[in-house]
Computed example of a mutant assay.
Amino acid sequence: MKIYGVVGYKNAGKTGLMERLVTEISGRGLRVSTIKHAHHSFDVDQPDKDSYRHRKAGAQQVLLASKSRWALMTELRVQPEPPLADLLAQLAPVDLVLIEGYKRGDHPKVEAYRAAAGNPLIAPDDPTVRAVAADMPLTIDRQLFDLDDTKAIADFILTEVRL
């Protein structure tokens, strides 16, 4: 599987860019999956639902299935967060996996940047950031895209991964 990341600080436009890229790339007939890294605890399960109760009771994994989808939840308890490579190995084969976050990973990335967020650029100190998608003109030694030019960013990523 080919992988490509979207990184940036909070409020940089990562999630919106990811959503647009998934729509654009899957619209071209390619199969796309995503991984989203969270820096906080999260819960995809709802209190008082059966699967939540199974997990809270101590189940290591809970697989929830219906005719529409299935989801596998794994509790880490005291285990460390798994490396990205281990998570990628859990995915079914697709043409491209887009990864939101994992800015310290060694995979290629495009950085989302919004000036109003007031954060520094990641790209100058990270050679794995191959391009920047910004909402303003920047002087940088990487490919620069308008943050809203989804087609051009998708073209760049697909060329980079040879798809």
Rank of each mutant, 00 (worst) to 15 (best):
2 K>G: 05
2 K>V: 08
2 K>Q: 13
3 I>E: 09
4 Y>H: 06
4 Y>C: 01
4 Y>P: 03
6 V>R: 07
6 V>E: 05
7 V>E: 03
7 V>T: 12
8 G>W: 08
9 Y>R: 07
9 Y>I: 14
12 A>C: 06
13 G>E: 03
13 G>I: 11
16 G>P: 00
16 G>Q: 13
16 G>Y: 08
17 L>A: 04
17 L>C: 11
19 E>Q: 14
21 L>N: 03
21 L>T: 13
22 V>W: 10
23 T>I: 11
24 E>N: 09
24 E>C: 13
25 I>R: 00
25 I>M: 00
26 S>D: 00
27 G>M: 05
27 G>H: 10
30 L>E: 02
31 R>A: 14
33 S>N: 14
33 S>R: 12
34 T>Q: 12
34 T>L: 07
35 I>W: 04
36 K>C: 05
36 K>W: 13
36 K>L: 11
37 H>Y: 15
38 A>R: 07
39 H>N: 15
39 H>P: 14
42 F>C: 05
43 D>I: 02
43 D>H: 10
44 V>D: 15
45 D>L: 11
46 Q>A: 11
47 P>T: 01
50 D>A: 01
51 S>Y: 07
53 R>S: 04
53 R>E: 07
55 R>D: 03
55 R>V: 02
57 A>C: 05
58 G>A: 10
58 G>F: 05
61 Q>C: 15
62 V>K: 08
62 V>D: 02
64 L>G: 11
67 K>C: 07
67 K>Q: 11
68 S>W: 01
69 R>Y: 08
69 R>I: 07
70 W>M: 15
71 A>S: 10
71 A>T: 14
71 A>E: 04
74 T>V: 14
75 E>K: 08
75 E>T: 02
76 L>E: 06
77 R>D: 14
78 V>F: 06
79 Q>D: 14
80 P>T: 13
82 P>W: 12
83 P>Y: 04
85 A>C: 03
89 A>Y: 04
89 A>F: 07
90 Q>L: 13
91 L>M: 04
91 L>W: 01
95 D>S: 08
97 V>G: 13
98 L>G: 02
99 I>H: 05
100 E>L: 05
100 E>P: 08
100 E>A: 10
100 E>K: 12
102 Y>M: 08
102 Y>G: 07
103 K>Y: 09
103 K>S: 08
103 K>D: 13
103 K>T: 09
104 R>H: 06
105 G>H: 14
106 D>R: 12
109 K>L: 00
109 K>W: 00
109 K>H: 00
110 V>K: 03
111 E>G: 07
111 E>D: 05
113 Y>M: 08
113 Y>P: 01
116 A>Q: 15
116 A>L: 07
118 G>C: 06
119 N>R: 15
120 P>M: 05
121 L>K: 04
128 T>Y: 03
129 V>N: 00
131 A>E: 02
134 A>C: 09
139 T>K: 05
139 T>P: 01
139 T>S: 08
141 D>N: 12
142 R>P: 01
145 F>I: 04
145 F>W: 06
146 D>P: 01
147 L>K: 01
147 L>C: 09
148 D>G: 10
149 D>T: 12
151 K>M: 12
151 K>T: 15
152 A>R: 14
152 A>P: 12
153 I>S: 13
154 A>D: 07
154 A>L: 11
155 D>H: 07
155 D>G: 10
155 D>I: 11
157 I>M: 10
157 I>P: 01
158 L>Y: 02
159 T>R: 12
160 E>V: 02
160 E>S: 12
160 E>N: 08
161 V>K: 06
162 R>W: 10
162 R>G: 02
